[in-house]
Design a binder for these strands. Sequence first.
DNA 1: TTGTAAGCGTTATCAT
DNA 2: ATGATAACGCTTACAA
Lengths: 347, 347
Amino acid sequence: MKRANREDVARLAGVSTAVVSYVINNGPRPVAEATRSRVIAAMDELRYRPNASARALKLARTNVIGLLMWDITNPYFSEMAKYMQERAHERGYGLMIGNTGQDGIEETAELHNMLGREVDGIALSGVRRPETLTAIARSGVNVISMDWHLAAPDIPSVGIDDYGATREAVEHLLWHGHTEVGLIAGIDDLTLREKSWSDTMSARCTPERLKELTAYGDFTRQGGYQAAIDLLKRPNPPKAIFVSSDVQAFGVVRAVQHLGLNIPNDVAIISLDGTDASAFTYPSLTVIRLPLDEIAKHVVDKLTSHGADERMHTTFPHTLIPRESCGCVSPEHAGREDVRAFSHSQS
Amino acid sequence: MKRANREDVARLAGVSTAVVSYVINNGPRPVAEATRSRVIAAMDELRYRPNASARALKLARTNVIGLLMWDITNPYFSEMAKYMQERAHERGYGLMIGNTGQDGIEETAELHNMLGREVDGIALSGVRRPETLTAIARSGVNVISMDWHLAAPDIPSVGIDDYGATREAVEHLLWHGHTEVGLIAGIDDLTLREKSWSDTMSARCTPERLKELTAYGDFTRQGGYQAAIDLLKRPNPPKAIFVSSDVQAFGVVRAVQHLGLNIPNDVAIISLDGTDASAFTYPSLTVIRLPLDEIAKHVVDKLTSHGADERMHTTFPHTLIPRESCGCVSPEHAGREDVRAFSHSQS
DNA sequence: TTGTAAGCGTTATCAT
DNA sequence: ATGATAACGCTTACAA
């Protein structure tokens, strides 16, 4: 049975195709109530569904947006994707995903893939290759970056105060009495977090020591695991570690335990992201939580509202959530951990 | 600067629009080498990109497929999504995602969302509402189910041998010397796994005891956590548990530890899924691993090849991966766990 | 080997 | 309040 189109509906309802359009779109012209209901009845009877491709062709708009990221398997991204999908749905949009891989090797390919599908906008997270940026610029597509407000001030962006959040995290560990805080960072990104750590620590360490306190891994559990093993097997390892992302921290927790060390007594850990999953390691992770839901909403809104929001960059607030891995909450307090924001001034 | 269309390219290259099409699509008619290069040059110069909407309208095909699932945040789904996206990309397709929520409340809405976007096919995972099935049937869209081969034999499906896998998992725990194995299951799904557990255990338990050994939670870390707390706080709790999904098992591990119990000595755990994340709990999870990558490929291929593959149902093999949570591998063997398939006959 | 032109299902402008 | 119709950019049968 052939699918009905607008003309079939019009014929059955005894109206013109234009009227069918007016009914479907509630405009741009008014339709008499009687006519409207005849049209609706006809649509029902024929199981009519408007053809999105035709509509997209006519309107030069697909009502689909894309999310380009490293790896949907990373809880940070999957939570972001979930919130974005929900918001997109609310606003009548669909969400396409593209994984660029840890090394960003698929970055350009995925970008072109999305551009070729005529998405109305693209959110970029963890995207960095210069080729990608120039490709974006010349494509003229609607874009928002979730990373580099700094590198490309002409491109709209969102983010958090990476520098401040990192300092806060490091200082929280110092507040616990640690004199040195190690760093586990991504291979070649999030340099602002690395810089903030280094600035905060350089008051207490020599530059050589800073190097000894740093290990790199990619943004996977495995990457965090290996970086932690590397770091902790060195001669004089730190007893507290700032991990630049939750996924990595999952690997770090596992590594510390594998080495037979105790968290937080032998090694205290804090990480930055605050995904839902971070509450379910054991011990649970003390984190700086990013408001992923808020960020996702903002990103989708920005991409789907034709430039109504003028701001080029929006910064979202972060929150320290003290849990077990730093020593704030003891593992004995099963299920009683306090998930409210932590404030140093109160202590 | 207006975007170039096929006519602009044709004009610049001094050919007809048809020839431009022939060049782009490598057919259906041959093009002289010289002409082809002129066309290509013109496309470059104008930064021409074919309009996917127009193409979709003409061909009645969007080259986009959809994945409808509960929650992309569940590692099982996010890993599946990743593999599917990769395969789709290889085959020139895009992947749209839709989250239906734990209760499936958004199921119909998301389905219509995808249908309205004219996706060429939809993969359903964790979808079960009867309304959804009838909506699918009448829409005539290309579909593949990743759950219910049984309930709707007229719809193509993939899966694993849930019954056999569960039996294997339970028997593995029994082989470890346990006499009773508890069950943590999803609220109203995966009944085949529940049935298999019940069949396997009923030789050793009374029906009343079977009830005492069962707890339900939704497919989240939190759901597993609460179900485990519930189960383990009962008078005579099991010392071994079969968990019907990895996500739930993450919560179970956390719950057991919170109760101050040791894994695997006080409580042994095995779960079914075998996501990458399952190797990073502490202790690591012994799992029945599903070949997500293979399944994803198959699903995408089936959805993107116009009915070339005749099979209505394909079953994929599963593999028992012995790790720490059952006692096969001791936590001391840091990084030395054997990830090959486990065979009881060898022991 | 290349050109012409019809048609895919919409939307929206111009009539009526 | 409604109808007729020209576009939107592409593919492809048919002509040359």
